[in-house]
């Protein structure tokens, strides 16, 4: 475990450095002049040069990079060149709804996927298993954005869930019920997409696990079915499920961005899209860095957890 931990940590640091580098590249190596973007119509060569100087954009690239790395490592994102608002403040406003959607949808997906996958795996090729397998294969082909959009009709129009329409996001601190209501459609839609993946992965792995010889061995000890399931089959199968969660994370982020865009929620995705309209390079950079870092940290945690659960992975 020790060596595994060190390896994963080294890889984590390396990935984070690469993310920083790439986020830096986006702004500095691609065509487009930040000063021009900031000043827009009012841009003149003189004004642009003066602005570049005040922003430190006239310095050599390596100096800019070093100060950028220094700032990012301290989570010091600076002040927005365009709005004048501290970027950390913008982030603290737009992160909560996104994180909430991710967490709640994953929770819902797992709460549904694990028992249903178990039910299907206990009788493979049974009626329930066949139906669930076919249904989930079909749902794989339904893009999340179609679900997000179409769920509006049953939830908002037929059921009339309050606050579930567009532009009605309520912060959690203000009213928790209204908050959940306002995110209900994205959460349900996102959880459907994740559920399908988790159900399929966990079901298939559980079926394989339950056919392993060590399950027969556990049976021959005379321990109960539920104990065999929870103690002997769930553990190896949860490794596959955890990997699936990690792999699914990036797709989930796409889903939340779309949900934010459709329902006009001021989350990370909405903010990022706004920033690309400007284009507000600094904000793009900060959002790219923060989002990528969060996803990478989640995957890091998953790696550690799988290493803990399955000693074959952490020992090599």
């Amino acid at each position: 475990m020790g060596r595994y931990l060190v390896k994963r940590l080294v890889f984590l640091v390396w990935i984070l450095l690469s993310v920083m580098f790439l986020a830096f590249l986006i702004i500095h190596l691609l065509p487009g002049d930040p000063a021009q973007a900031i000043l827009q119509q009012g841009w003149t060569p003189q004004l642009g040069a003066a602005l570049n100087k005040s922003l430190g954009l006239d310095k050599p690239l390596w100096q800019q990079y070093l100060s950028y790395v220094w700032n990012m490592a301290h989570l010091n994102f600076g002040t927005d060149w365009i709005s004048g608002q501290p970027i950390s403040q913008t982030l603290s406003q737009c992160l909560p709804p996104t994180i909430e959607m991710v967490l709640l949808s994953q929770l819902l997906a797992l709460v549904l996927a694990i028992p249903l996958a178990t039910l299907a795996a206990l009788r493979p090729s049974g009626i329930f298993d066949r139906l669930a397998n076919m249904g989930s294969f079909g749902l794989l082909s339904v893009p999340t954005y179609v679900v997000i959009t179409l769920l509006y009709i049953p939830i908002s129009e037929w059921l009339g869930v309050p606050n579930s329409g567009p532009a009605s996001y309520v912060p959690f601190t203000q009213d928790w019920l209204a908050n959940i209501e306002s995110l209900s459609i994205p959460i349900i839609a996102l959880s459907i997409g994740s559920f399908v993946v988790y159900f399929r992965v966990f079901r298939a792995d559980l079926i394989t696990s339950l056919q392993d010889e060590f399950i027969t061995m556990a049976r021959s000890k005379g321990i109960s079915k539920s104990r065999i399931l929870f103690r002997h089959a769930y553990r190896p199968s949860s490794v596959a499920l955890l990997s699936a969660i990690g792999v699914n994370m990036a797709g989930l982020i796409t889903g939340t961005f779309i949900a934010e865009s459709v329902f006009q929620i001021n989350g990370v995705g909405g903010q990022l899209l706004q920033a690309t309209q400007q284009p507000d390079y600094q904000l793009i950079q900060a959002i790219v860095f923060v989002t990528a870092t969060l996803i990478i940290l989640i995957n890091f945690a998953i790696d550690l957890l799988t290493g803990y659960i399955d000693p074959r992975i952490s020992r090599d």
Partner: peptide, 17 residues
């Protein structure tokens, strides 16, 4: 690049066996 749709998991024997 980890955008679902997933992944067809470990061999799925259910149909045949």
């Amino acid at each position: 690049f980890a955008q679902s749709p997933p992944a067809f998991p470990r061999e799925d024997h259910s149909i045949h066996e």
